[in-house]
Write a protein that binds this DNA or RNA. Structure first.
Lengths: 124, 124
DNA sequence: TCAGACGTTCACATCAATGTGAAGGCAAGT
DNA sequence: ACTTGCCTTCACATTGATGTGAACGTCTGA
């Protein structure tokens, strides 16, 4: 698929799809005329990228952890890939993600608690 | 406490504390000489703000939802506060927060799954 | 074949969050 | 009194994620 269709399917402007490529997050093929050609999985990849960006991760971090997300088990067969640095990177990032989750969950709960309390007060 | 101490206690540069005030996220008193004076709870407030900013919320959204987080029950007694707009705002924001949580949790799990699989492969 | 929709690159603008420095006032210790 | 450190405001710079437009090539249907 070409960039316009991917944009339509994901709701992400073409400008951004080109930007993500520049940031090494997407790697479309090129057809003879130079047009970007995306595989069908690109839709999910883009949604993945968007979700992580919206959650406060930078393109740099996304670039570094993406290779380890949703990988087929083939890659896992080569534990050589896991240098101590990569291990530390992944663990550190997972922990920071966990921090964010806890912060967000706390505040989500606070909001719902507020709404529930109001509801409750109104019913009385 | 003055801005320097708050900065030391939270690790957030004074420049940012002044910025958060400008963005209506903090409202310190002023002493006679014009110095900002923060109450003891400011430490938690700043951590709260930092956590939300790191999680991808903008200062604008934080400003709008903060009044409803960690409020003493006094305020809850006035359900008049909950106009339909505020209700929609809070629900909408809570849902978007939930989206982020799910995205982050998915990827945290993926990272840990990867690490576990490596661990597993290495033990064989 | 020509128009219109889509693609390309390049470049400059914006916005939010943050860094940094200048110029000057206030406070506390020696 | 003077130094040192903290405070104030003002202002300009930077970085990352975006918006937007120019100038130009490519495909496709009437």
């Amino acid at each position: 698929m070409k960039i316009g269709e991917l944009s339509r399917r994901t709701g992400v402007p073409t400008r951004m799809l080109r930007y993500y490529e520049e940031q090494d997050l997407l790697h479309p093929e090129r057809s003879d005329n130079g047009y970007r050609v995306y595989g069908p999985t690109a839709v999910y990849q883009v949604q993945q990228i968007r979700g992580l960006l919206d959650s406060g991760l930078t393109t740099e971090i996304i670039r570094r952890i993406m290779p380890f997300l949703d990988k087929p088990d083939d890659i896992l067969m080569h534990p050589r890939c896991l240098t101590p640095e990569v291990d530390a990177l992944l663990r550190g990032e997972a922990e920071r993600i966990q921090q964010r989750i806890e912060c967000l969950a706390r505040n989500r709960d606070a909001i719902y608690a507020y709404l529930a309390a109001i509801q409750d007060a109104g019913r009385r």
